Simulated assay, not measured.
Amino acid sequence: MRLNDPLVTSFSYRGVEYSIDLAFDNVLDVFDVLGDKSLRNQEKAEICLELLLGYSPTDQSLTVELWNYIYETFIHIESKQPLEYDRQGNPMPVKKEDDRKLIDLEKDAPYIFASFQQAYQINLHREQGKLHWHEFQSLLNGLPSETIMQRIILIRMWEPSKGESSEYKQAMRDLQNLYALDDEGAEEVDD
């Protein structure tokens, strides 16, 4: 996303101009479709194009090509670690990225909603159909540290270190279990 480029509402592919609805809630619906294990890939591509374009091409190979182009160009946001250079201009060693998933747009929805309300006074329900996916991503990535979502991310990232009391470590482990994204860390308690 560049600040001097308009938000994407249309694009050209193979000489054809397409209108596209990249409202954040529409893109979240696309993610729901992509996560549906009962659908085949071709069906997912067709449904996603219906959501984003309002229709799906009848040519199945074009459907897949067009979907892949849209996903890679407008939806998928890859977090690349910027290259750093030493004083002589040599590339510095790249730090290994943490593979842990720190946020889930579906499971963390209440915390994201509350954080947008707290930080930006934005009610995401009222912004459905309006707030562009790229705007949503930028605001989500820029949430201030005092928001609940950022605090939960810090909890998920926490690792014990020397000097921390055993009570603090246990409290943090309990919080990690409470906010765990995978089913392994969360324990269900029957009342």
Rank of each mutant, 00 (worst) to 15 (best):
S166A: 13
Y71D: 13
P160G: 14
N123E: 08
M157I: 06
Y55M: 07
Q128Y: 10
E84R: 14
C48I: 09
I112R: 00
N141R: 12
L140V: 11
H134R: 02
A45E: 11
E97H: 03
E106N: 13
S138R: 15
Q117H: 05
R87H: 04
I153L: 13
Q150K: 15
Q137F: 01
K130G: 01
Q121F: 15
I155S: 14
G142R: 09
R156L: 05
S79M: 13
I47D: 01
E65L: 08
R151D: 11
P144Y: 09
L143N: 03
D86E: 04
A45P: 15
W67L: 06
P82C: 04
Q81A: 13
K101F: 04
T58N: 10
S165T: 04
E46N: 13
K162I: 08
D104M: 07
Q121A: 13
G54D: 00
D86P: 07
K96S: 07
M157P: 00
S61I: 14
Q118E: 12
L51E: 02
R156N: 04
W67H: 02
K162F: 10
A45C: 15
W158C: 07
Q118A: 12
K95F: 02
D86N: 11
E72H: 04
S138K: 15
N141L: 15
Y71L: 14
E78W: 06
H76R: 14
N68H: 10
D104R: 11
Q128I: 07
K162A: 10
D104N: 15
S61V: 13
